[in-house]
């Protein structure tokens, strides 16, 4: 005897669960924003000191599209400001990645470089990058260069440390296998050690891109006259907290997007890490 089971109620229940699971993620932020909106409108604090989310969104909109000049001189200039910051992030990050990977491979692979270079770098590492600001300003003046220098300092060490770790933990037998197949010293580095260290290097790059955004914004507050960090700090002087918050949101968003981009590159490059196994045998 066969019994026919009506799947519709189960499917309906499943759809409800899915809906609820989608809601789960937005419940807390939605409540926070709604509470913030209500509190801001209640007049406990002057609106200039705590702008409502709607006001922040309004400022951000005008900053990006320039529809009613509520953000005054910034109106419609968001792209220019974001691009200025992004270029500093990219410049410092690219330089830090290149030098961090090179130095990391050298230190991780060669005892000589480890002994000569590492102590100096490890002494420089605990110095907070922001404490270099006074020196950066007298060396490079007020422009892109001090910002790129700070971004470099913040991004270099995570890349360096993770590359060293990646190179040092390369499976010893892979190196033996390479030697068995006749790899030269250079081929050993480019064809075996570097690809084997890539997962670790990418972990360092992701930390580095986060610090790159942090330091760009810091540098722009102090040593540069453009970019999102500059807008943020300048608006604070004019008590435009709606623009301050809009700038914070922009930085958060761009930082998040940079990490997403890096993750996408990582997923493509490290596709071999997937761990699905074909069982059984051929032939």
């Amino acid at each position: 005897m066969t019994s026919v089971i009506d799947a519709a109620p189960a499917r309906r229940a499943f759809r409800l669960t899915r809906l609820f699971q989608g809601l789960e993620r937005v419940v807390v932020p939605a409540l926070l924003i709604a509470g913030w909106e209500v509190f801001a409108r209640s007049g406990v604090l002057p609106p200039a000191l705590l702008p409502a989310p709607s006001a922040v969104l309004h400022a951000l909109g005008d900053w990006v599209f320039g529809f009613d000049e509520t953000t005054q001189t910034y109106s419609g200039h968001w792209l220019r400001d974001a691009l200025a910051s992004a270029l500093r992030v990219f410049g410092g990050f690219a330089l830090a990645s290149l030098l961090g990977i090179l130095a990391g491979v050298a230190i991780g692979w060669s005892r000589l470089f480890e002994k000569t270079l590492e102590p100096t770098l490890q002494m420089l590492r605990p110095i907070p990058p922001v404490s270099w600001i006074p020196l950066a300003i007298i060396w490079f003046g007020i422009a892109d260069k001090p910002a790129i220098f700070l971004v470099f300092l913040g991004a270099f060490f995570p890349v360096l440390m993770n590359t060293i770790h990646g190179v040092k933990t390369v499976d010893h037998n892979l190196v033996r296998a390479g030697a068995m197949m006749g790899a030269s010293q250079r081929q050993m580095l480019t064809d075996i050690v570097l690809p084997a260290a890539l997962p670790s290097i990418f972990a360092g790059l992701r930390i580095a891109v986060g610090s790159a955004w942090m330091l760009t914004v810091t540098a722009e507050m102090v040593a540069v006259k453009s970019g999102l960090g500059y807008v943020l700090w300048d608006s604070y002087y004019f008590l435009r907290y709606d623009i301050v918050l809009a700038a914070m949101i922009s930085i958060g968003l761009l930082g998040y997007l940079s990490d997403l981009g890096l993750k996408a590159i990582m997923a493509r490059t490290l596709r071999w890490q997937q761990t699905t196994t074909v069982q059984g045998r051929a032939g």
Binding site: Q274, T276, T277, V278, R281
Partner: peptide, 8 residues
């Protein structure tokens, strides 16, 4: 064209 992680 399989990677080692995909093979037994």
């Amino acid at each position: 064209h399989h990677h080692p992680s995909e093979l037994s």
